[in-house]
């Protein structure tokens, strides 16, 4: 499983970014290969539509799952369309969230039946 998290680098340790669209980096953790890849968030400095561009970056990383504190509607629409599961982070601790994710202990933010209540 490929898990992506928004990351803010601090002098101490890497934390989960508080804003998805404006976060500095994205970290991809591949649980099968047990490796991590870091990608810049090109949307961080953009004027508008940062959430859309950030979601595009995550989707282009071929994420299966993204863990974030909250998700705007536009980004959510894209994750649903790309079948990326959106999980809510429970703290800013990266390892803790990955562990909880692998144990299915994080809340799923995606609507499992998109469009059902709207159309």
């Amino acid at each position: 499983m490929k898990i992506v998290l928004p990351i803010e680098k601090t002098s101490e340790e890497d934390l989960i970014g508080t804003s998805f669209g404006r976060t500095e980096y994205f970290m991809l953790f591949d649980s099968e290969k047990d490796e991590t890849v870091i990608t810049d968030n090109k949307a961080a400095m953009q004027q508008g539509g940062a959430g859309i561009k950030a979601a595009q970056t995550v989707i282009d990383m071929h994420a299966d799952v993204v863990i974030l504190p909250q998700c705007g509607q536009n980004a959510m629409d894209l994750f649903i369309a790309a079948k990326v599961t959106v999980l809510k982070s429970i703290s800013r601790d990266v390892l803790e969230n990955i562990e909880k994710c692998l144990n299915n202990q994080l809340e799923v933010l995606n609507d499992p039946h998109p469009g059902l209540h709207h159309s």
Binding site: G48, G49, I52, Q56, I59, N74, D77, L78, A81, A82
Partner: peptide
Amino acid sequence: FNAIAVIQNQIKIF
């Protein structure tokens, strides 16, 4: 304005 995203070779306009 980042109003366009591309998923599975299809574009979506916001």
